[in-house]
Design a binder for these strands. Structure first.
Lengths: 224, 224
DNA sequence: GTCGACGGGATTGTCGACAATCCCGTCGGC
DNA sequence: GCCGACGGGATTGTCGACAATCCCGTCGAC
């Protein structure tokens, strides 16, 4: 709960508050079932309660928190069965995206993706987990946008957001970050060479770690 | 624009306003690109502008309208390419849902779906397009919920909501309503007998009419 | 001793009013 | 005559304050 605000901008808009809370959830500073109280957040972010409220609405739309009327907001907790379902659907959609992506990717688009990945590399090298998280999102967004179906790309992004609530288990691990980085480079190589089979396989494997980490964390929690 | 409010409840909550506007879009009373002005809506629904604003946020989340900061809200217009992409993704997800649905469906669940379809039948028989629309949504929700993956069911529902903005072209047609009704019954029969191939085929065919109707309406519009 | 009514405190939800922004018709200068 | 600054009007965005709701500890009755 004690957490200095990071608002350097003159006005802490709802989007900034939502992003900060999103990171708190991803990095486990807010654990599942934890309650979010509007006035506390308003004080922490030096924002009005209206903006906090709007931010909570955003997070609810992303599936990261749950709001119960007149009762407040909680960080959403996912059961094992839900994690399995979520991963299965992500696998389906990301595989589909890989299969319909035009290959090999034009050099101009490849360059954009390489630029995004350079940002990710830098963040990982610097050990900046927060920046790595954001850069990772940006790379994935750019990558799946290339599948040619905006609705598919949006659905994939939405599911990835939902998975944030379970990803906290995997993300702080530097080895996982490095592995993610390597996989991104392998994906770029497959895009460049037009290796569709490899690309599809990479996409499937890429989301396995977070699922496994969650299951591990969950079983550790249950046995504790 | 002239449209009596249908609020019989003492308080017109945001959800009710959103539902009414959703229907206006589905039935073509609000056409694509039409502007939605908060104060006008507040007067029409005898609600506060706050509630109207919340309703607009809901509709934006459903992809039915577009909001531009400081500029207001418009009914969202979809291009032909977007319609194709939307339909392709719906096809993928609904086919997947049909393929993983446990068959044959237990009698208790079948009874629930039959009850929902009875409501749809009644609305179609009565020629009540509004009720038919709602009952159709309820049947689809109940149907796809049976696929065993809540995220898949939710994604399907979200895409169906988005399709509302293009469905207006098909919905007022009584023949289409009757056909939809028949297809629902065929789906129920497939669920009962465990005919997975038939079920999958039915799901695919079931969303073809709205796409075709949209393309027809679009070409008619372009040639006008 | 247990159960149900009651109230204080904390928290969320809603309202009216004001401030900020944008569009567009108008005007003055070059 | 055309271009850019300017203001009026319409519309959206934000604030502070108040009302509604809920949780939970307390008390009294059976």
């Amino acid at each position: 709960m004690p957490q200095a605000m990071r608002a350097e901008a003159p006005a802490p808009l709802p989007a900034a508050i939502a992003a900060a809370l999103e990171e708190d959830i991803v990095f486990g500073r807010l654990h599942p079932r934890e309650r979010l109280i509007e006035e506390e957040l308003a004080e922490r972010f030096a924002a009005s309660r209206h903006n906090v409220r709007a931010a909570l609405a955003v997070l609810e739309g992303m599936g990261l928190i749950e709001r119960i009327p007149h009762r407040g907001a909680l960080v959403k907790a996912y059961s094992l069965a839900e994690v399995e379902q979520l991963c299965a659907l992500r696998d389906l959609l990301e595989t589909q995206a890989a299969q319909q992506m035009p290959l090999p990717l034009p050099e101009a688009e490849l360059a954009v993706l390489r630029g995004l990945q350079a940002g990710h590399d830098a963040a990982v090298a610097a050990g900046d987990a927060r920046a790595a998280f954001r850069a990772n999102l940006a790379f994935h967004r750019g990558f799946f946008a290339r599948c040619g179906n905006a609705f598919l790309a949006e659905a994939i992004e939405r599911l990835a957001q939902r998975a944030h609530a379970i990803r906290f288990a995997a993300f702080p691990d530097p080895a996982a970050l490095a592995r993610s980085r390597e996989e991104h480079h392998a994906m770029l190589a497959a895009l460049a060479s037009g290796d569709r089979a490899g690309l599809t396989r990479l996409c499937g494997n890429h989301l396995a770690p977070s699922r496994q980490a969650y299951l591990r964390a969950q079983s550790a929690f249950l046995s504790a």
